[in-house]
Write a protein that binds this DNA or RNA. Structure first.
Lengths: 157, 157
DNA sequence: CTACTTGCAAATCATTTGCAGATGA
DNA sequence: TCATCTGCAAATGATTTGCAAGTAG
């Protein structure tokens, strides 16, 4: 095996933290304490969240002045750029969800309890691609929300 | 034919102006000069628009102090309530489109020129309903955006 | 070292609200 | 007549920015 044998260029599976570090370094940005804490919190569980919910989880740090609201906003933006988070604007406010290494999906949105239920449909993607082809439109992605009322809220209500 | 013979309860086709008047009266609200002017402008052509674009079309009236920004916002809200307009939040700001008497559709959204191209697919609705049934979710509607780049922008480079 | 970051306070942007005077039914 | 509207100015809420001090590489 030659000396210059190299590993595959694209690592198949880095942790979100590693992936973010890679992204930051590639851009001459720094891996700071704050950015590390935010990524850790964001990827500690799979869920949809907005800036305020994230800020709430980071309350302690904020009260200790080790982290601030603007930094959280700045870092959320970077996580989106890095492809780790997907941002969607839902009834005014921005909502984020994990994107890195997470299968593509759409959402059922319950208007009563504001819950997002994920689902995946190959068929929707096929229709999307067919329609796009008809319009000679180059697809980069899509977003679909089915609005309505979930089982629980219908039972309660 | 009896004296109390009545016309069908639901008129099949009123103009947007008439429909809005009906809506306002049903709620004890008034048909004012301003509301009339706004509906007229909004339905003068089929297009997607945001509050600022509408305000721009109404510049003259605003400079003459016959109409104001808050009134435009208030009336847009009422038009949505009345089912005349559909509101969608697109990258932060609210975008409106005709809803009354207009067939349901989805959008291709060109990220370069920000254009919305409408398309309709029965198949998407069928998939939507099937998925909803699987989740015992009561569908009220849906919204789908296919993001990408349109022909023109691809040609331009 | 020194360029990139941060927290802070203040700015911004779109939208909303309180209120006194104006107006439609 | 008088409850509903309107324009105005000011408030709001989410997000962003300028800047001097702090820190990663």
């Amino acid at each position: 095996m030659p000396d210059n044998f190299s590993l595959p260029k694209v690592q198949v599976k880095l942790s979100p933290e590693e992936r973010f570090t890679q992204f930051l370094q590639k851009r001459g940005k720094r891996v700071t304490q704050q950015r590390r804490l935010i990524v850790e919190q964001v990827f500690s569980h799979h869920d949809h969240f907005d800036a305020d919910e994230l800020l709430e989880h980071l309350q302690e740090l904020i009260q200790r002045r080790e982290l601030s609201r603007p930094t959280v906003y700045r870092t959320l933006g970077e996580l989106v750029e890095a492809g780790l988070l997907r941002k969607m604007s839902l009834s005014g406010r921005s909502v984020y969800e994990h994107d890195y290494g997470y299968p593509s999906h759409d959402h059922l949105f319950c208007q009563v309890c504001n819950t997002l239920i994920e689902f995946h449909s190959d068929q929707i993607e096929r229709v999307r691609d067919r329609v796009a082809r008809q319009h000679d439109f180059h697809v980069l992605g899509h977003r679909m929300f089915v609005t309505g009322i979930c089982t629980e809220c219908r039972k309660r209500g």
